[in-house]
Design a binder for these strands. Structure first.
Lengths: 113, 113
DNA sequence: TAACTACCTAGACCATACTCTAGGTCAAGA
DNA sequence: TCTTGACCTAGAGTATGGTCTAGGTAGTTA
């Protein structure tokens, strides 16, 4: 699987994947005889997780921690990071609920006036 | 009320408030005899809303639309923007729930292994 | 063989949203 | 009067996260 294929599989752009590699977010991919990057299903799995975490607002610096744990096959470390992430998502959920409440209230007030 | 006071009142930095003014997000403030910006309670209200919308992920370009409606005292326009914003918040809520589900599942799986 | 496509590298460029600096004014307190 | 602190302007610098360009290689297709 080359970069174009994994790009399609994960929804991340080719430039973005190379950018993540350059940043150290993902490991330097193995290259085939032509010097083209080669990916496997584990890479797809990781990049899909990266996309998921990114979309839920995790900064790349934190995603990098998760990626390191993922590569080290250190389930405990991965678990810690994911639980931490989950807590952040719950916090986000609470904040979001607050913004929804405040905004709904304002909408209701405007509708009455 | 000068810029330092409104900064404390809204939690936005002094530089940030001047930056918002420069961007056209908020109106150019009136100046006193010393050339210092003067704010009133309506400005506090708007800046608090801006902070709220910003924290819930609205880009400044969209916040600007709301600010224009706010200044024009056009309740209908404000209402439209706020309802639109509310819909985006609900969408965010659904997305967030999805990320929570997926992450919880992964956490549960890791705990079993 | 020529064109076409996907890939490569290094590095420039972009958008967003600040954040700070330099150099200066002004009013009040010691 | 001198110093301190809050303010001013214009513009430079920073952080994040991409996105694109130039110039080139390699394999496949007409």
């Amino acid at each position: 699987m080359k970069i174009g294929a994994i790009s399609k599989a994960t929804g991340l752009g080719i430039h973005t994947i190379r950018f993540y590699e350059k940043k150290g977010l993902i490991h330097r991919a193995k290259k085939d005889d032509s010097g083209h990057r080669v990916y496997n299903s584990k890479d797809v799995e990781l990049l899909n997780w990266i996309a998921c975490m990114k979309n839920s607002g995790m900064p790349l610096s934190r995603i990098e921690n998760y990626a390191h744990a993922f590569y080290s096959d250190n389930n405990l470390a991965s678990l810690n990071i994911l639980e931490d992430h989950l807590n952040k998502l719950y916090q986000q959920q609470a904040d979001l609920q607050h913004y929804i409440d405040v905004t709904s209230e304002k909408v209701a007030r405007l509708k009455k006036s």
